[in-house]
Design a binder for these strands. Sequence first.
DNA 1: TTGCTCCTCACGTCACGTGAGGTGGC
DNA 2: TTGCTCCTCACGTCACGTGAGGTGGC
Lengths: 149, 149
Amino acid sequence: VSATAERTIRIGELAQLTGTTPRTIRYYEEIGLLDAGEARELGKHRSYTSADAERLKEIVRLRDLLGLSLEQLTELVEAETARAEIRREYRATPSEDVDRQRYLLTQAGRHIETQLGLVRGRLGELQMLEQELTDKQALVAEKIAALSV
Amino acid sequence: VSATAERTIRIGELAQLTGTTPRTIRYYEEIGLLDAGEARELGKHRSYTSADAERLKEIVRLRDLLGLSLEQLTELVEAETARAEIRREYRATPSEDVDRQRYLLTQAGRHIETQLGLVRGRLGELQMLEQELTDKQALVAEKIAALSV
DNA sequence: TTGCTCCTCACGTCACGTGAGGTGGC
DNA sequence: TTGCTCCTCACGTCACGTGAGGTGGC
């Protein structure tokens, strides 16, 4: 949107921004989780944008917080790319097809629902763990108090 | 406490109870995360109790929910074993040493605090993710509603 | 006794880590 | 031009998965 060309970063900076390593990024590219960018000549440096950083941050987050495998993440990214492509096509040929538009939005909603399900599942488990730990903590505090009587 | 001898289970049942596999259990024994039990003769079956199941469940939980490495889990288990040993010794020679008792309880409290810190950190991250997803969801719902006008 | 379940190697796999030796680009 | 940072192999490692071939125990 801005008139100035976007600043591009290299693999080291992308790694720092996303809390990963260059090796991890190259590996993700190798297995097709990240795409290779526009046909880089062999030996030349990889170049990224802030959009790439956002995408990778999201991937790393889902990997760490939900424990998804790289295969699952690849599927997820592919589904997301496919839906983005559909939306792009749709915007390119604007029509009055409200049903189609509603369908696309519903699809997006379902996708968000699925992720929310995973997140809330984890949240529930962690809250149970937290409860158990605070219970233990209360017990210890009680015993300490009993010593001072 | 009960007069009846405790039922012992084999590796397959332990795996089922803990949501792991026999291979995983053998591996954890191999690296010293689980102890090998009383000197089993080579080739004979491993035998476990429900206490072993509880311990392993807890390990698996921390592994999955907090993403701890097996090295970290080994440290944690060792620390816990050491503290249990100290408590056992202490109970064996009951004394009036209230300061010592207070010290042990405080140590236990600190350990719980550490785990609570990890759990709450994760909880915070997951709650942020949940918030972002519900925001997205609201946006989609809004757009769908706008179509029906 | 039969049939599961278990046993011990041992090689395979996933997700990277870690050099070695060499080149790209501000 | 110098000096980082990056490049591509390629082998190592962690946490198991997956047979192969054989034995334990209700």
